[in-house]
């Protein structure tokens, strides 16, 4: 059965967290290289990329939608930053350009879905192609490299020994958690995803709040692209391919229903970490990359299968 979401962790997340811990325990037994401080920091740092994209995806999926364009927005915002920087803008201004472009793409998705009444799948599928195409056009298909160290510190910097991307990710999760649990935006997001018609009849501005979810997804994709550019010292028009699928996987492993209306960002964080730990562990174990794909896919399927089964049972019992 579903419990109130007000506590930081509730039944569903506890389950996912147990899965994560079990995975860690298993890797700890399997390889001496896993449970070192530097590796664990490394895992969290690597999870930050998908982790941040997945926060936006959580908002979108909570409203009952989907956003296939996040990966392309990552590429486009990065290229926008790169182009602006190449054109002579100071790096802070260039970053602002990148973030604005991401936000604009998200708002574009929102407008297509709410004003244009397109199904989210179609609208964002279109955006996925458009954004990727513009990224390739702007950059002539070439990566745009070379950024000042001050900007690259976004990815390489540390605060008290903690890599900056980790801090950024945790801060974003904290803000998202606050938004979802304590604000109008959050409550309306759940309400719209749970029952759009009843929400509209309660006087909620369904269009605005739905569009907000896509805008958040676009903005966070842009934030991710900043990290990515800083990390690789290069803005790539082909960056972020298939990020949408990794992000959806993290969200769903984290227990958010694809039907909308229930789920938490804490779950998503755990989901993103599960994916990160799994990849890291398989690398550490030296598993062949063919088998890695099988393993990752299987974990996604099993996690969601178990979750859906329980959910269906609870739901059937309640109706």
């Amino acid at each position: 059965m579903a419990l109130p979401r007000t506590k930081l962790l509730h039944g569903r997340e506890v389950g996912t967290l147990a899965g994560l811990l079990a995975l860690c325990a298993a890797l700890w037994v399997a390889t001496p290289h896993f449970a070192t401080v530097s590796n664990l920091v490394n895992v969290v740092e690597q999870s930050a990329i998908i982790g941040i994209v997945a926060v936006g995806m959580t908002f979108v999926i909570l409203t009952g939608g989907i956003d296939l364009s996040v990966g392309s927005i990552v590429a486009l915002s990065g290229v926008a930053l790169g182009t602006a920087h190449e054109a002579g803008l100071p790096i802070a201004a260039a970053a602002a350009v990148g973030l604005t472009v991401g936000l604009a793409c998200g708002l574009g998705n929102g407008a297509l879905i709410t004003l244009g009444r397109l199904p989210p799948f179609i609208a964002t599928l279109g955006m996925m192609s458009v954004a990727r195409g513009i990224a390739l056009m702007l950059s002539d298909g070439r990566p745009i490299s070379g950024y000042p160290a001050s900007f690259r510190a976004l990815a390489t910097g540390h605060v008290l020994g903690i890599p900056f991307p980790v801090i950024l990710m945790l801060a974003i999760y904290a803000v998202a958690h606050f938004l979802l649990t304590r604000t109008l935006l959050g409550r309306y997001t759940y309400a719209i995803g749970g029952n759009e018609e009843a929400s509209a009849l309660s006087g909620i501005n369904v269009r605005a709040y739905k569009a907000a979810a896509y805008a958040i997804a676009g903005l966070l994709s842009a934030v991710t692209s900043m990290l990515l550019v800083a990390r690789l010292n290069s803005a790539q028009p082909i960056a972020g391919i298939m990020y949408e699928l990794d992000a959806i996987a993290a969200v769903v492993i984290g227990g958010t229903s694809l039907l909308g209306g229930s789920g938490t960002v804490i779950g998503t964080l755990i989901g993103a970490l599960i994916m990160g730990v799994l990849r890291n562990g398989l690398n550490l174990l030296g598993v062949s990359s063919y088998l890695q794909q099988v393993a990752i896919g299987s974990v996604i399927i099993v996690a969601v299968l178990v979750d859906m089964m329980l959910r269906r049972r609870a739901r059937r019992a309640a109706e």
């Binding site: 389950g15 899965g19 995975l23 298993a26 399997a30 178990v306």
Partner: peptide, 16 residues
């Protein structure tokens, strides 16, 4: 649920 997921994951990792 946790027990089940945990069992699956542990099994998979140890196997690998």
């Amino acid at each position: 649920r946790p027990v089940r997921i945990a069992a699956v994951l542990v099994g998979a990792c140890l196997g690998i």
